[in-house]
């Protein structure tokens, strides 16, 4: 049941990223920077933190693959990066208390790594047309800040969905 709800939420996040959010992105209104919404990634990190590293890995792989199929031509970049992020969120959660400070800083760090990984892969295959400094200033910093704020907003509802009854560490 809980997994059903969280899968549905992540699915909605996945759709919102490419549709509703794209109307409101800053560069659509002529601003020089852009925000890449990583709502799904935030959800995957929450799952990793509250439901364990293996669940995080599985959710990261599945939703990364969906993201790749719907939004990009090349399959594998986001599958790999989101899977890794879910897994490492689960790993780190073992050593810290799951406070709002921990989750939001986790999302800040992992979003940075995820963006850099994706940029690295697209640069490796020579598909990105952005220089390193442009990537840092125009894209990475606004994106990470936005996702940090988003993490603080969804922390309490996500905790309520994910941490109700006394399940074990790992579900999958």
């Amino acid at each position: 049941m809980r997994l059903g709800i969280i899968s549905f939420i992540l699915f909605i996040f996945l759709l919102v990223e490419g549709t509703i959010f794209q109307v409101f992105v800053p560069d659509a209104w002529g601003l020089p920077f852009t925000i890449v919404p990583r709502l799904v990634l935030a959800g995957v990190i929450f799952i990793g933190i509250y439901l364990g590293k293996n669940t995080g890995l599985v959710y990261g792989l599945i939703f990364g693959l969906l993201y790749d199929i719907i939004y990009t031509d090349m399959i594998g970049v986001y599958t790999l990066s989101m899977g890794l992020m879910g897994f490492s969120a689960g790993l780190a959660a073992r050593y810290f208390h799951q406070t709002i400070f921990f989750t939001s800083s986790m999302i800040l760090i992992l979003t940075t790594i995820n963006e850099s990984l994706a940029y690295g892969f697209y640069e490796l295959f020579n598909l990105s047309n952005m220089s390193m400094s442009d990537f840092l200033l125009r894209e990475l910093i606004p994106t990470v800040l936005f996702n940090g704020i988003f993490a603080i907003i969804i922390h309490v509802p996500m905790r309520n969905v994910l941490k109700d009854k006394g399940y074990g560490e790992d579900i999958v």
Binding site: E17, G18, T19, F21, Q22, D27, T34, V36, P37, I70, Y71, T72, D73, A118, Y119, Y122, L127, S128, N129, M130, E139
Partner: peptide, 12 residues
């Protein structure tokens, strides 16, 4: 138009 890729490396 139905959707747009959220990231800025795939302009699709």
């Amino acid at each position: 138009v139905i959707q747009r890729t959220p990231d800025r490396w795939n302009h699709m």
